[in-house]
Amino acid sequence: MLAIRLPAELETRLEALARATGRTKTFYVREAITAHLEDLEDFYLADQRLADLRAGATQTVALEDVLKRYDLED
């Protein structure tokens, strides 16, 4: 269970969409979260990896080395 407060304009738009389509507001909120959650996870993972790189906690690997290691060279 999740309860959220939306700005009035967003709530109005969501209600209008639900009425126009015969779907529930919950349906559209679930769809929006599903569509964007993976992008958000990817963004925060990349941000953490960049912070680790800048802090010297991790190193990069040259693309050529990766291709060679996994036998992906042309």
Rank of each mutant, 00 (worst) to 15 (best):
E9D: 09
R30P: 04
M1F: 07
E31P: 06
D74F: 09
L10G: 05
E38R: 15
L6A: 01
A62Y: 07
E38P: 14
R5A: 13
A18L: 00
E9V: 08
E31A: 07
L40G: 11
V66F: 07
E9Y: 08
D52A: 08
R5F: 08
G56K: 00
R5M: 12
E15W: 08
L37T: 09
F27V: 02
A20Y: 02
L67S: 03
R19S: 06
E11Y: 04
L63R: 14
A16D: 11
L14G: 00
H36M: 13
Y44Q: 07
L17K: 08
Q48S: 14
A55I: 00
E15S: 09
E64M: 10
E11V: 02
T21A: 01
R13L: 08
T21H: 01
A8E: 10
A51F: 04
V66N: 06
L17R: 13
H36P: 11
F27T: 05
T58P: 05
L17G: 07
T58W: 04
E15N: 15
L2K: 15
D39R: 10
L14T: 00
E41D: 11
A16L: 07
Y70A: 01
L6Q: 01
A32M: 03
D71Y: 05
T21R: 09
T21N: 01
A20Q: 11
L14H: 00
T21E: 04
D47T: 14
A57H: 15
E15D: 10
Y70G: 02
E41W: 13
I33D: 01
A46W: 12
L67R: 12
